[in-house]
Design a protein around this nucleic acid. Structure first.
Lengths: 350, 350
DNA sequence: AGTGATCTTTGGAACGTTCTAACGAGCAGT
DNA sequence: ACTGCTCGTTAGAACGTTCCAAAGATCACT
């Protein structure tokens, strides 16, 4: 059973013809207007059923000059942090009746520019973007000036003046470092990321704040830059432990760096959480299941995505742009990759 | 600098007016027609520049009765396997000039039905879907019957007759088990997933094939079902080692189960790759960085996504549906979570 | 039967494109 | 001077909706 594939979709006019009414009436039925008589409504609904009618939102949008599609531009979907962010955004959009057009730029600014153009042409209602490194701000501003709501998330483009939703990276890293200091560490490294990334600079700032608040002098050599990946973390921690006077702990740019660092440590026979403390950032799903489970800072990633979506939806609804960046809270989750330094434990035992 | 935000976008007609030509001419310029005189083209391009014109693809699509948007419905984006699949699809679509409308159903069949409807209304050119568990096949078939190309990926809906792109789960699991048998294991468990999942059944089939090919009798008790998650893996391996006569190795429904199992083993003081062998499936990014690095089966996930996209694009271009399922290859990646059983090593040493 | 008032329905323009058919201008060949 | 071409341009219908303005029905009162 089942009708043969139709060549082209039935339209409101086909319905009207079959139900013996005008297309206007069909349109009214479509929007559940109380104006149409119950009996007529039935007839129209029956005709829709019979013809397998599907609403053509594209046509409606053209007429109404609006859209329920939103562009979602993600800088690196393969990074679990951004995956969760995307899921948070998608979920919130979906609840509000919007659907995201996805583009994964893979941190390629040129690709970002192209997809923005394409998304713009598509007639979306707005764009949420986690900008790639070295984003071309001009394109973004062109689009914003054309009147399209844009929200940046996760990476701040301060020069742009675009609405921004992010986490409190500085405060987050500060509590991470304070946790280590509280445990007795005095020599603490910072692993991963590059100073060209706004996020890294913010996290490093928190790191320095915590150090100076506890009278520990900042040593540039204790910052090891690397790609924000597992293997980057491995490399970074290696340079750290090879130092003449190595630290006893390190905070990491993100959880992937932390996981990579822990793995490299264990390869070197150093056990994270006993011989060396590691604290991550982001609380990706993997963190809780790592060996050892990772102490990390969470920015409530999914919530953050939802928040970004809501800011965009407000903008679309005509609200004025938020006057200040929206900064989400940050919270330390203590697991087993951090502990008192070995020297401390020895001293206590003695 | 920078014009004030425009209330509404300039149209082809505005351009025409400014350039002193008809909208038809502007349209020709837009499609790079050789018909228009170079000088006129310049004038039109200048006008576009001046007015900040953006092409309205929605309007064009209405007229042309086609679209360059494709629906991408993913059952669980938080699972790294599906993330990579989605990235593979997105990349291939993007190359072909298409953009994916994303929906993450989170394995909820009702949500899946709703988003399919919404995506359908949107007027997409086709749909790629990794169906959720217990999918409502009827909706999918309704849409397919309406003439919209649909490709299922990863999860086969055999009853549906829809085009399918997947991996060779059976062969993949077979080589995984044969690897363990080759190492000397005779008692091998299967961890994770549920028999209600087509994928699990296919993998279990491969598991049984390998056993019987080597004269090992299959024991139902060595299959431990669980959610296909890290914590599910932990639970599953626990029931396994608590058995009176526990196995010495296990293959897992997927890498997340495997990682969870390894973690639980280590909590029990059992070291994976020495005391107990574990083999995963999917080769998610985390696998190579796990402790110990995970022996696993890869289905070339990203490639698979690209393949699914291409099948869909062909369908959209009017090609007939592939007569048989498209099954991608599968390959074993040996890392450190699998080794000869302890008994074997002892015997060799003696 | 006439007058409103209230329901219900409808024609047609509009949204921003594409495309067909046709038109005018210029020119070569007679 | 006419014919036929080619070149460049264009008017207008069409795509599937929404919505305004207005028309027709129906009904309750006088």
């Amino acid at each position: 059973m089942g009708a043969p594939p139709r060549k082209s979709r039935a339209t409101i006019i086909d319905i009207a013809r079959l139900a013996g009414v005008s297309k206007s009436t069909v349109s009214l039925v479509l929007k559940n207007s109380t104006l149409v008589k119950a009996e007529t409504r039935e007839r129209v609904l029956g005709a829709m059923q019979a013809l397998g009618y599907v609403y053509n939102r594209g046509a409606a949008n053209l007429r109404l000059a609006r859209s329920n599609i939103v562009g979602m531009v993600i800088s690196d979907l393969m990074n679990p942090f951004f995956t969760e962010l995307a899921v948070g955004i998608e979920e919130a959009l979906y609840r509000a009746g919007y659907v995201p057009l996805l583009a994964n730029t893979g941190e390629d600014p040129e690709r970002q520019t192209r997809v923005l153009q394409s998304i713009f042409e598509q007639g979306v209602a707005g764009i949420v973007i986690s900008p790639s490194n070295r984003s071309d701000v001009a394109t973004l501003l062109d689009i914003a000036r054309a009147g399209l709501p844009i929200v940046t998330v996760t990476r701040r483009l301060a020069e742009s003046g675009l609405p921004y939703v992010g986490q409190d990276n500085t405060a987050g890293e500060r509590i991470a470092v304070e946790h280590l200091i509280g445990l007795g560490h005095r020599r603490i490294g910072f692993l991963g990321g590059y100073a060209t990334m706004a996020t890294q600079r913010e996290r490093v700032a928190g790191y320095k704040e915590a150090l100076s608040a506890h009278g520990i002098v900042f040593e540039p050599i204790l910052i090891a830059e690397s790609p924000p990946t597992r293997s980057g973390g491995g490399a970074a921690v290696k340079t750290m432990i090879d130092l003449p006077d190595p630290p006893t702990a390190a905070v990491c740019f993100n959880d992937m760096v932390a996981v990579g660092a822990i793995r490299e440590l264990s390869r070197q026979g150093i056990r994270a959480g006993r011989d060396f403390s590691i604290v991550g950032f982001d609380d990706i799903a993997e963190a809780a299941h790592n060996a050892p489970p990772l102490t990390t800072v969470t920015g409530e990633t999914r919530q953050l995505g939802a928040e970004a979506a809501h800011v965009l939806l407000d903008l679309i609804a005509g609200a004025p742009a938020p006057s200040a960046p929206v900064i989400g809270p940050t919270r330390l989750i203590v697991r087993e990759s951090s502990a008192a330094p070995a020297s401390e434990r020895t001293r206590l035992r003695a």
